[in-house]
């Protein structure tokens, strides 16, 4: 469903490219973990497939169509949801309003929007009372979970997440990744998670390692 075709990226000089000739494929209904050392370019790669930036060379294809042909704004609006490393919630809203606003902007429809959002929030441990509080009154971990639910509630088929479990404890991390898995399998989404936690990587269907400017896909080590 999502494909990179010979993409390369560099900030200043071609000689200092983070990577070149990257050809990867992401299928729907699967979860992917991208691992690699700090500064290797994971976040940058995510921004390319999320349509936040354009690759220096090559192109990103969504269902065979180049995403700049779809239009990056349009692509972000309809086909991809993003969970940021620094959650980036609307600080003047409640958790529930954050989710509802994102759903409204992306025209995502679910049976009983509000009930659906409340249900999703409660699944990751944010009860109704908390959901109606201003997000700034939630803990960092809680805010992170709100950001994840915000991305999951949108209809976009591709969900990209940058270190989504960075602020979560072991139990919450497990529950969150399980939620991602459930989402991918039940709704046929393609979830791409950048992580440095081996635990998280193990839970995903496939792991892609970025090392020495090369991406290598490792088969899932599944029991």
């Amino acid at each position: 469903m999502l494909e990179t075709k010979d993409i390369g990226y560099w900030y200043d000089h071609q000689a200092n490219a983070l990577y070149r000739n990257v050809n990867l494929q992401f299928a729907e209904g699967k979860t992917y973990a991208i691992v690699g050392s700090s500064g290797s370019g994971k976040t940058t790669f995510l921004s390319l497939i999320a349509g936040l930036d354009k690759p220096s060379e090559g192109e990103v294809l969504y269902n065979g169509r180049a995403i700049n042909k779809i239009g990056l704004t349009n692509y972000r609006n309809k086909y991809v949801s993003i969970v940021f490393q620094s959650y980036n919630l609307f600080t003047y809203m409640s958790a529930l309003d954050n989710v509802l606003t994102a759903m409204a902007i992306t025209n995502s429809q679910h049976k009983g929007d509000k009930e659906y959002a409340i249900d999703m929030l409660s699944k990751i441990g944010i009860d109704q009372d908390m959901a109606k509080k201003n997000v700034q009154r939630l803990s960092g971990g809680q805010q992170q979970r709100v950001a994840i639910v915000r991305a999951m509630c949108c209809d976009a088929k591709v969900v990209v997440a940058d270190e989504p479990t960075g602020n979560l404890d072991e139990t919450n991390t497990r529950e969150t990744i399980e939620l991602f898995q459930e989402l991918a399998h039940a709704q046929g989404k393609c979830v791409i998670i950048v992580t440095h936690e081996p635990e998280v990587a193990k839970m995903c269907d496939e792991t892609i390692e970025l090392k020495n400017k090369e991406f290598t896909t490792k088969s899932a080590i599944k029991a």
């Binding site: 999320a50 704004t73 972000r76 609006n77 993003i82 609307f90 600080t91």
Partner: peptide, 13 residues
């Protein structure tokens, strides 16, 4: 800025 960034990342015009 962050708020605007999130809106734009959500594909808001």
């Amino acid at each position: 800025r962050y708020e605007i960034g999130v809106l734009l990342s959500l594909g808001e015009k």
